[in-house]
């Protein structure tokens, strides 16, 4: 009797414990579904500039392909090409004639001549939400002078 009980215990001790994978599979499936739901094909092509916080909006408008102007707290760029420095609420280091930022104007005109985008007269503007209107106005007017009077203002959906 004593020997039989000892033998059973010994067999149980030698048995390799099996991991229960079912709960792990459940967890992984939930994570997978969550991640798949958060993938947006449109947003994949959109590269958000560093050093800016986009304004919040309820707009549901989707992305289009167009030339991007980025007005960050440090610099003004067209796509990823440097145009001018931004210091505080001012654009510095480039000639400004009235409301025309000359360097931006020249660069946008160059883009316009090369661009094969369907939306040829549209600029996507990424700008920091704390910027005052005067600063944005200069960028918007310059783009309009260069042949881009229509804009898509990049926002963060609420």
């Amino acid at each position: 009797m004593f020997d039989q009980s000892m033998g059973r215990r010994s067999r149980q001790a030698n048995k390799v414990p099996q991991l229960n994978l079912n709960s792990m599979m459940d967890m992984l499936s939930i994570i997978l579904v969550f991640l798949l739901a958060n993938i947006s094909a449109d947003e994949k092509d959109f590269v958000l500039a560093a050093d800016l916080t986009l304004p919040l909006s309820t707009s549901k408008l989707g992305f289009i392909k167009a030339v991007q102007v980025k007005l960050t707290t440090k610099e003004l760029m067209v796509e990823d090409q440097f145009v001018a420095k931004v210091s505080g609420d001012k654009i510095v280091g480039t000639r400004i004639e009235g409301k025309k930022i000359v360097q931006l104007y020249n660069m946008l005109q160059r883009y316009r001549s090369f661009s094969k985008e369907a939306a040829k007269d549209i600029v996507i503007l990424q700008a920091d939400r704390e910027f005052p209107f005067e600063l944005l106005d200069k960028v918007l007017r310059t783009a309009a002078m260069a042949g881009y009077p229509n804009f898509r203002l990049a926002i963060q959906k609420e």
Binding site: F46, L48, F63, I124, N150, F151, L153, K157
Partner: peptide
Amino acid sequence: YHLGMVSTSV
């Protein structure tokens, strides 16, 4: 976080 657009013109 999801990004979007607001259409406008001058």
